[in-house]
């Protein structure tokens, strides 16, 4: 029997129909400083959006707010119709693990674990069951079928990037957040990675929000949010 297509599991029906991301009257401040202010922004279910802006414009902060890693000082953030701030911390952790896939700029692969175990860790922490065949199929889909046993330290930057993408997809999230996924890559690898992200998100039925200052990937996205340089 053929292994199931990676990331192609059924989309959770719980939030079906709701926008993947909705921001209302968002303000994020640290002390007297306003780091981010957005009156309204929305990304539809299965939508693709780019968050643009120079360094220090708050792109990473916005992704962290969307992932519930930080909470807004004012306003609401709805992810798949759920208000993150209204959840308990524990519920938010579990919700994040099951609903959001995150590709960090620094990748954050666990160096003590093999590539395959990095994926297993993501499933274990959310209590999701994935067979070895499913995980290997996912690695195959991102072009790392032969690198399942490798340690992160043995991977090239491009390979590590693809592992991070596979890990973000492994729990079949509703929303994928990617922070500067191409900034450290050459043109060819940048193209490979962005096309991979779009394809896998499409297959998984997930919305994709990419924060970047890399103009090379503009053509792939119609919805864009420009953040100013002033905070």
């Amino acid at each position: 029997m053929a292994a199931p297509s990676p990331g192609s599991g059924p989309v959770t029906s719980e939030f079906a129909g709701a926008a993947a991301v909705t921001l209302e009257g968002l303000r994020y401040t640290i002390g007297p400083r306003t780091i981010l202010a957005l009156e309204y922004w929305s990304v539809p279910d299965r939508g693709r959006a780019l968050v643009l802006g120079p360094s220090g414009s708050g792109k990473t902060t916005l992704l962290q707010l969307l992932a519930g890693l930080a909470l807004p000082s004012a306003g609401r953030i709805l992810i798949a119709g759920r208000d993150l701030a209204a959840m308990s911390e524990g519920d938010r952790d579990v919700f994040r693990g099951r609903t959001i896939g995150f590709v960090f700029q620094a990748l954050h692969l666990v160096r003590a674990l093999s590539v395959l175990d990095n994926l297993r860790l993501a499933t274990f922490l959310t209590g999701t069951e994935r067979s070895r065949e499913e995980l290997e199929a996912l690695l195959q889909a991102v072009g790392l079928g032969e690198r399942a046993g490798a340690r992160p330290a043995d991977l090239s930057q491009g390979e590590a990037q693809r592992v991070a993408i596979a890990r973000a997809l492994v729990n079949r999230p509703r929303l994928i957040l990617a922070d500067e996924p191409t900034s450290a890559l050459d043109d060819r690898n940048a193209r490979t990675v962005i096309e991979l992200l779009l394809a896998r998100a499409e297959e998984a039925g997930a919305a994709l929000v990419v924060a970047t200052h890399d103009a090379r990937i503009l053509p792939w996205f119609e919805q864009r949010l420009e953040l100013g340089s002033g905070r």
Binding site: L69, V94, R96, G97, H108, T126
Partner: peptide
Amino acid sequence: RGDLALMRVLGATRGL
């Protein structure tokens, strides 16, 4: 510290 924070991002509670 990065790994531990990552575990939280991946869905681990503080307790876990």
